[in-house]
């Protein structure tokens, strides 16, 4: 802060700086109280609770909930299903997102309208998305099977036969517009001169894609992958709304399990321990994201 004119005398400057600092703290105070109460206290309380068990979380078990989680087949299953879900969502989003972005980055008539349309599901409530697809895909009553039937085609039973793949598809359906927009931004950051140089050197379209587009999209790809993974690991609403974690426990995603443990079985201690374990995974991914971001800016 460079004060000037009559205020530049050292004593006055010191007084002014102190006054400004006081104003700053005063303006920050409500936000700091908020973050303390709604973020830092809960993280601490969650850690404390994870050392207890029972419906009132008043029976001390130390690390008991953690050892239980690590040996609990249901928790392990939920984690593995969630990993499969996340990998599915990210891989399909990357492939579709890059393809859609490359096409919508062309000088196509109406490309802005197309981009807008792809974004609608992203802004739509997951309650609508989940219920709508459950209705469409319902093996007996859904519109899809009645359409397939009247066209003489074999009917589908995806919700029961491939529940995880089905919620992967629904999640991609909802978020593909977001990934596409990020990739379009990434493509627009690639200077056209690179392509001209490649063309002068006689590179085929595939070679230009492979050696110009893809390498220069790496930062966007890392961003979309990590953010997509972090989001997918926290997916709750789709198993809750579409499959109820089933059939059996086939689509029992991790946060859905945490929710059931806490608000179904009222085992807040165990739910807290489960939460902390997933938090560690997500924090590790966030650090990867931060490192990658720093490298891009440094380069």
């Amino acid at each position: 802060m460079p004060p000037s004119g009559p205020l530049a005398r050292p004593a006055a400057r010191g007084r002014l700086a102190r006054q400004r600092a006081r104003t700053a703290y005063l303006l920050l105070a409500p936000a700091l109280v908020f973050f303390a109460l709604m973020f830092f206290y809960p993280i601490g309380a969650e850690l404390t609770t994870s050392a207890f068990t029972g419906v009132r979380a008043d029976e001390f078990v130390g690390f008991g909930n953690y050892t239980r989680a690590l040996t609990d087949p249901a928790a392990r299953h939920a984690f593995l299903v969630t990993l499969r879900f996340a990998v599915g969502v990210v891989v399909v989003s990357l492939v579709l997102g890059i393809a859609a972005a490359m096409i919508l980055n062309q000088r196509l008539r109406g490309r802005l309208v197309f981009r807008g349309i792809l974004l609608v599901p992203y802004l739509t409530s997951v309650a609508i998305v989940g219920l709508l697809w459950r209705n469409i895909l319902d093996p007996e009553l859904g519109i899809l099977n009645r359409l397939l039937g009247s066209a003489g085609l074999p009917e589908q039973n995806w919700l029961n036969e491939h529940p995880v793949a089905t919620i992967v598809a629904i999640a991609v359906w909802q978020d593909i517009g977001y990934a596409t927009l990020l990739f379009i931004a990434g493509l627009q950051g690639i200077p056209e001169t690179y392509y001209e140089a490649a063309r002068v050197d006689g590179a085929t379209p595939w070679q230009r894609f492979r050696h110009v587009t893809l390498p220069l999209l790496v930062p966007t790809t890392v961003f979309v992958s990590v953010i997509g993974t972090i989001t997918a690991l926290q997916q709750f609403a789709l198993p809750y709304l579409v499959t109820d974690g089933g059939p059996g426990d086939a689509s029992d995603l991790y946060v859905f399990r945490v929710y059931e443990t806490a608000f179904g079985f009222r085992d807040f201690g165990y739910a807290s321990a489960l939460s902390y374990l997933l938090l560690i995974v997500i924090l590790a991914l966030s650090i990867v994201q931060l490192r990658a971001g720093r490298r891009d800016h440094g380069a």
């Binding site: 973020f39 809960p42 993280i43 969650e46 997500i282 924090l283 966030s286």
Partner: peptide
């Protein structure tokens, strides 16, 4: 740093509070 705290970590303690 609060950006790295997912909501599911906060839901049980805030509910209790």
């Amino acid at each position: 740093s609060t950006l790295m705290i997912p909501f599911f970590v906060r839901m049980v303690p805030i509910y209790t509070m």
